Simulated assay, not measured.
Amino acid sequence: MNPDGPFQVVAVDYAGSLEALRAVREAVFVLEQQVPADLELDALDPRCRHVLARDAAGLPIGTARLAPDGRIGRMAVLRAWRGRGVGSALLHALLRLAREDGRDRVTLHAQAGAIAFYQRHGFTPVGERFVEAGIEHLAMERRLDRPLAVEDRAGAVAITTAIVAAARRRLWIYSRELDPGLYDHPRVVEALRGFGTAGLGGEARILLQDAAAVQRAHAPLIGLAQRLSSVFAFREVADPVDRTYPSAFIANDAGGYYFRSLGHRFDGEAGHDARGRARQLAGAFDEVWERARPCSELRALGL
C-alpha cells in the first residue's frame, strides 16, 4: 500500500463489498479506537448506501455510509492515508448520493477530533456534545439546498482537493498566479497528480494572469505539468479586458465548482452537484482560453 499514490472513491453494493468495508472499519474503529465489535456492526448496514476508497492497487483504504434517514456515519480512513484528502472525497461522494436521493440536508455525529474537519465542509453544530461508544461526539448537519460557504485556507484546500478528485476527465482552473497556499499545498498537488495519472484521457486547462510570477515561484504544479504535458496546459490571459477580471475559480465536469469573487482571497462559495453553475464557469473560461497566450515557457524542463 502506497500512501503517496492516487486513490479512487466509488459507491458500492454492501453485500458485494462487505469484506472490504469491514476490513477498514475494523482496523479503525475496533482495533484502533477500541469500539466494541458488536456496536460497530449493526443491523442498519444493509439498508445504507456505502462508498469505498481504494488505492491504485485496488486495496480498501477508507469507507463511509449514508443511512436511510440521511445520517452520515462510519467514516473511516486507514491511518497511513489520513491527511491526504481521502476523507474529503468520501464525504463529498456521500453528499452527491444524498442529493441524488432528493435530500435537502444531511446529519452526522462527529467525533470531537473531527469537528473542525466537518465544519470546513459546511456542517454546523446541533446541540451539546455527548458520549457515544465511549467517545465524545457532537451532532452536526449540513443543508444541501444552498452553496457551501468557504471561509479560509483550510476550507479552500479541502474543497479544491475534493473537486479535483471528483473530476471525470476535465478540469478548468482560473487563477492569478496559482494562489500560493492553495495550488502548492501537498494535498492539492497530490490530487492533481492522481487526476493526471489516472489514464482516463483527462485534460486540465489552467488560465493565469501572471505566468512570470508562477515561474519565479517554482510552483510545484509546473513540474507536475512538465511531466504530464498531455494532461496539463497553461495559458496566460492576454486581452486587456480579460486582465481586469478580479475572480478565480476551479470547476470540473462532474458539477463541482469553487468560486472566489476576489481571486486573491480564499473565501468564496462552492458546490459539488451544481452542473449549471459549473457549466457556466467552464463556458466563460473557454471563451477567454481561446484569446489567451500559450505559456510555452512553462513547458520547458529545468526551470
Score class of each variant (00 low, 15 high):
Phe130Tyr: 15
Gln111Ile: 10
Asp13Ile: 08
Arg216Asn: 02
Glu100His: 14
Gly83Thr: 00
Arg103Asn: 13
Arg277Val: 15
Leu138Phe: 01
Ala114Glu: 01
Gly302Leu: 07
Ile135Glu: 05
Ala112Val: 07
His92Gln: 14
Pro240Arg: 12
Val9Ile: 11
Arg47Lys: 15
Phe259Gln: 11
Leu228Thr: 14
Pro125Arg: 06
Val164His: 10
Ala282Thr: 10
Gln209Asn: 02
Arg227Glu: 13
Gln33Arg: 12
Thr160Leu: 05
Met1Thr: 12
Pro294Val: 01
Met1Ile: 09
Tyr257Ile: 08
His185Glu: 02
Gly73Ile: 04
Arg120Ile: 00
Val10Arg: 15
Gly263Trp: 06
Leu39Asp: 11
Leu182Arg: 01
Asn252Trp: 02
Val150Ser: 04
Phe266Asn: 09
Ala254Phe: 08
Tyr14Arg: 14
Asp145Cys: 07
Arg277Thr: 14
Leu44Glu: 13
Asp286Cys: 11
Ala284Arg: 13
Arg65Leu: 12
Glu26Pro: 01
Phe123Tyr: 12
Phe266Ser: 11
Tyr183Asn: 03
Leu138Lys: 03
Ala112Met: 13
Ala76Thr: 07
Glu203Trp: 02
Pro3Cys: 03
Gly194Glu: 04
Val288Arg: 14
Pro147Phe: 08
Ala15Asn: 14
Leu138Ala: 06
Asp267Leu: 02
Ser175Cys: 13
Asp145Leu: 04
Ala156Trp: 00
Ala156Tyr: 00
Pro46Ile: 03
Arg265Pro: 04
Gly70Pro: 08
Ala211Pro: 11
Asp38Glu: 14
His92Gly: 07
Leu21Ala: 07
Ala56Lys: 10
Glu32Trp: 03
Pro220Tyr: 00
Arg168Lys: 12
Asp101Trp: 02
Gly194Cys: 06
Arg216Gly: 02
Ala278Ser: 14
Pro60Ser: 08
Arg74Asp: 07
Glu100Asp: 15
Arg279Pro: 03
Asp13Gly: 10
Ala284Gly: 15
Tyr118Val: 00
Gly302Pro: 02
Val150Phe: 06
Thr197Glu: 15
Leu200Lys: 15
Tyr257Leu: 07
Thr107Phe: 13
Met140Leu: 08
His137Gln: 04
Ile115Cys: 01
Trp172Ser: 07
Ala191Pro: 07
Asp267Met: 04
Asp145His: 04
Val189Asp: 00
Val237Glu: 09
Gly271Phe: 07
Tyr245Ala: 13
Ala56Gln: 11
Pro68Gln: 12
Gln209Val: 00
Glu236Ala: 06
Gly73Arg: 09
Trp172Thr: 08
Gly223Leu: 03
Ala149Ser: 13
Ala292Pro: 08
Glu177Arg: 14
Val106Gly: 05
Glu32Pro: 11
Val231Ser: 05
Asp69Tyr: 09
Tyr258Phe: 15
